[in-house]
């Protein structure tokens, strides 16, 4: 079963929750860090990395001998990755979505492809080998997160338990990350910002037609807006995590929720089974 951990707002505790589920489980689990702009899961899981691979995306190369400077490729490109001013086109690789369109429309067969590195994938093992970790990292200055996320997702097995740490927000990187999950946990905090962004996240997962529940982090630090909203909308609150200054300090040093608040371990251990039962009942 694949559980995606997401949130509208950043910094609500997605990574904290995802790591806690992976560490509280007793069976083998895959931890997939799809927050490729700021991957932080490894800070807490501390995996031994055994392989690092570049993420290559195809970008066009123009054969200037064959190119007739007709400009069709540049006019076709929807992403402005090719610019032609009566000359063979200039290529802006960071804007290229690798759709292949320019080569399809080129009448002179002047376009071939080369791999352009936009990030890296690392594979590792944590917790004595029980937790497999795959992390994607977008290069600084890189624009397109989704291809890196797709590479991370290609390592997620179909069987067994996987936890997917998603990027914040509601736009394309999030959709890409939660795409093939079986269940989504939306982590929020009990503040007006938390509630506002939770509503956007709920709209998103509902639009995608995915089953989901909410996790409230630092539930005793704000107001009751989030709990009231979940009640009105009939949304399951999977777990409420208390605010402890000791937890904040533990986290700041790279400690996990289970280190900071050990009594949460049993609750997090049960979460995959609760979700499984919930899905089966539907």
């Amino acid at each position: 079963m694949r559980i995606a951990v997401a949130s509208g707002k950043g910094g609500t505790g997605k990574t904290t929750v995802a790591v806690a589920i992976a560490m509280a489980a007793t069976e083998p689990v895959m931890y997939a860090d799809c927050d490729v702009e700021e991957p932080n899961g490894s800070i807490f899981l501390k995996p031994e990395v055994y392989e690092i691979k570049k993420v290559l995306v195809d970008v066009p190369v123009i054969d200037e001998e064959k190119c007739t400077s007709c400009g069709k490729c540049a006019r076709f490109c929807q992403f402005n990755a090719l610019v032609s001013l009566g000359t063979p086109p200039l290529v802006f690789p960071e804007l290229c979505h690798s759709c292949g369109g320019c080569a399809i429309v080129c009448p002179a067969d002047a376009i071939s492809w080369k791999g352009n590195s936009i990030g890296e994938i690392s594979l590792g093992k944590a917790d004595g080998g029980r937790v497999s970790v795959v992390q994607g990292k977008l290069d600084v200055g890189g624009v397109l997160a989704p291809p890196v996320i797709r590479q991370v997702k290609s390592h997620i097995p179909h069987d067994g338990l996987s936890v997917i740490d998603c990027p914040p927000g509601t736009s394309c990187p999030v959709i890409e990350s939660i795409g093939e999950a079986d269940y989504v946990l939306l982590v929020t905090e009990p503040t007006p910002f938390g509630l506002h962004d939770l509503k956007l996240a709920v709209e998103t997962v509902r639009e995608l037609g995915m089953p989901f529940a909410v996790v409230i982090n630092r539930f005793d630090e704000g107001d009751l807006g989030v709990e009231d909203y979940c009640g009105e909308e009939n949304i399951l609150i999977m777990v409420k995590i208390p605010h402890r200054r000791a937890m904040a300090e533990t986290y700041s040093r790279g400690g996990t929720l289970l280190d900071g608040i050990p009594e949460m371990r049993e609750i997090f251990k049960d979460i995959p089974r609760i979700i499984e039962r919930g899905i089966e009942e539907k």
């Binding site: 950043g10 702009e37 397109l144």
Partner: peptide, 10 residues
């Protein structure tokens, strides 16, 4: 600004 380092931040 937005969080992250990707296209909206740039």
């Amino acid at each position: 600004g937005p969080p992250g380092i990707g296209c909206p931040v740039i």
